[in-house]
């Protein structure tokens, strides 16, 4: 069951990752822009069980580590995404006010995105990866959060629909 869900999810993740790298990254948006792939992974995690969310974080993190614009060592984004995806799913799982409510999901994703960036900064400091001056970091954090707040409600219905397709599909004998 789990294997089938993963095999159905993987192409979707790959597609969104390629879309992020080939299309979204073409635009130099003010405030640092947004990461559609991170938003997708977080939405997927929020509306999944903690077990699926941890695996989602692992897969998404590996892909983010493979991106050429990933600043740190391979595994850094993997570690962060596992923690964040598991965390948001664990906190929201079973609580319909969050995981079943679009506003709750948007709130969770925006906050989780901000925490993801902060964790990246913290782990970068530990691993010796330079991340820039305070002002620039603050601007990126603020810009990224605002973009996430704008983009998430737009893409949430589509991502939720895709999640339903993958997780509500029953195998036929």
């Amino acid at each position: 069951m789990l294997t089938r869900k993963i095999s159905l999810s993987a192409p979707i993740f790959l597609f969104i990752f390629i879309f992020q790298e080939a299309v979204v990254n073409q635009f130099k948006l003010p405030g640092g822009g947004f990461s559609l792939f991170t938003i997708f992974a977080l939405v997927w995690a929020v509306i999944s069980t903690p077990e699926i969310a941890a695996l989602t974080g692992f897969g998404a993190g590996i892909l983010m580590d493979m991106s050429q614009s990933a600043g740190g060592p391979v595994g850094q984004w993997t570690l962060i995404m596992i923690i964040i995806c598991y965390g948001v799913s664990y906190l929201g799982y079973g609580d319909g006010n969050f995981s079943g409510n679009p506003l709750g999901v948007v709130f969770f994703v925006v906050v989780a995105n901000l925490v993801t960036e902060l964790l990246f900064l913290a782990s970068s400091a530990l691993l010796g990866v330079t991340t820039g001056g305070f002002g620039q970091v603050l601007l990126t954090l603020l810009g990224n959060s605002l973009w996430t707040l704008v983009i998430t409600p737009i893409v949430l219905p589509l991502f939720s629909f895709m999640h339903n397709i993958v997780f509500e599909t029953r195998s036929a004998l």
């Binding site: 069980t49 903690p50 077990e51 941890a54 695996l55 974080g57 692992f58 993190g61 580590d65 060592p73 391979v74 595994g75 850094q76 993997t78 570690l79 596992i82 923690i83 598991y86 691993l127």
Partner: peptide, 25 residues
């Protein structure tokens, strides 16, 4: 049982990520 399995999976994934970081460094 399910919770225990999830925690085990979570810890395994975390260890894997740390392993990757170590290898890369």
């Amino acid at each position: 049982g399910t919770e225990g399995r999830t925690r085990l999976l979570f810890i395994t994934l975390i260890v894997t990520a740390l392993f990757l970081i170590t290898l890369d460094l």
